[in-house]
Computed example of a mutant assay.
Amino acid sequence: MEEDHSSNFLLYVAVAIVGVATIYLVRRFFKGKQFTENVKAKDKVIIVTGASAGIGKQIARELNIRGGKVYLMCRDVDRANAAIRDLAAKYGCDTTRLIVIQGDLANFASVRKFVDEFNRRESKLDILVNNAGIGHYSNFEKTVDGHEVIFQTNYLGHFLLTHLLLPKLEKSDSPRIVGLSSILHLNADNVDQKTVEDEKKFSWMLGTYSRSKLANVMHAAVLTKKLRADDPTTKITFNTCHPGAVSTEIARNTFLSWPVISSLAKPFIWFFMKTDYDGAQTPLFLALSKKVDGASGKYFAECAESKVHPLVHDQAACDTLYNYSMVACGLNK
């Protein structure tokens, strides 16, 4: 009888060990590839948009810990300063190298004001991380500049910011632009002006979001070609990436933010989705890794080059988007 109890106990222990090991391995799989290179960011001047929370906050954290001077471009200055205090308290970040400048990508005048202030403070820019974004809007709305909110926040605002900062990037020895896109860019139908600005074609789910993320990838491809055509010796690189399925505030305007749904979903979110820090790994890889020295116009996922939408290879489509964006942002004058 005692032998039966002992056998059962050992069986339970074995099952428990296998179960815990399985959960650990599966959870580790969903965490995704981690950036483990020992690369410093000492003396580098960096801008991270949308750095008051989520992936952007974790990117700022890691770049600061590695020695970089990080500017946080955020709409809400108070919230950004609270994020800095949190980073200092939890991770020992150096607050003298975390600086907030207010900037709203949904307002071109605000973007220009941000750049003016940054230019007043710094003589160069080493790394620009275009991270900020919104994933869902229940209704079609236009910004003060007359463009659909998601498309301007995720794409046009970053387009303007990037082009205004090119002179500062050119002053760096190893300038890099990193754009956060999404695997959902593969689902986009197109990025034609008539589509992205048409209320009837607005998608309250993820269609409009997917278009903005496709535009990000196309921007990196076309700007790379234009920069190298203008100056074959340019050191500026521009790559985009999919950070993974991350549980961030980008879903704050969806049903997933409802209290009941949020509570029920927590165990599944913990198990199947990445943390903010996990989501920051591929952007950090593109910002710092020596493995991507010279690489530009590419799209990455899990720290490796990945498949892109066919329109990214369509030069005519890329040029059309680029020309539309130049006019929309007032850069053609």
Rank of each mutant, 00 (worst) to 15 (best):
F159D: 01
S203G: 12
R120L: 13
L286E: 01
T282H: 08
Y277C: 05
Y12F: 14
S110T: 14
V191A: 09
A317G: 00
E148D: 05
K113M: 10
I17T: 11
F202R: 03
F238R: 07
R75T: 01
P267V: 03
A287H: 00
K31W: 09
S262D: 15
Q102Y: 06
R27F: 14
L331A: 14
G330M: 08
F202H: 05
A16H: 07
L180H: 04
S182R: 11
L264P: 08
S263A: 14
P267N: 06
L128H: 07
R28T: 04
S52D: 05
N253Y: 15
I183M: 12
H309E: 06
C318R: 04
M326D: 13
K266T: 12
D278L: 07
L164Q: 10
A88R: 13
A80Q: 06
L186M: 01
S52M: 06
F268Y: 13
N8P: 06
I177K: 03
V45E: 04
I65Q: 08
T237R: 07
D189C: 12
K42G: 01
F255A: 08
S306H: 11
S123F: 10
V20G: 15
T195D: 13
A301S: 08
N107A: 10
P259I: 03
I84N: 02
A51P: 01
K225F: 09
G294D: 02
Q34W: 02
L186Y: 00
G244H: 10
Y209A: 04
L286Q: 02
A295C: 00
A317R: 04
R97V: 08
E197I: 03
A14Q: 07
A80E: 00
P175R: 06
N323Y: 04
P283S: 06
L98W: 09
L63M: 07
L98T: 06
P243W: 12
L98F: 01
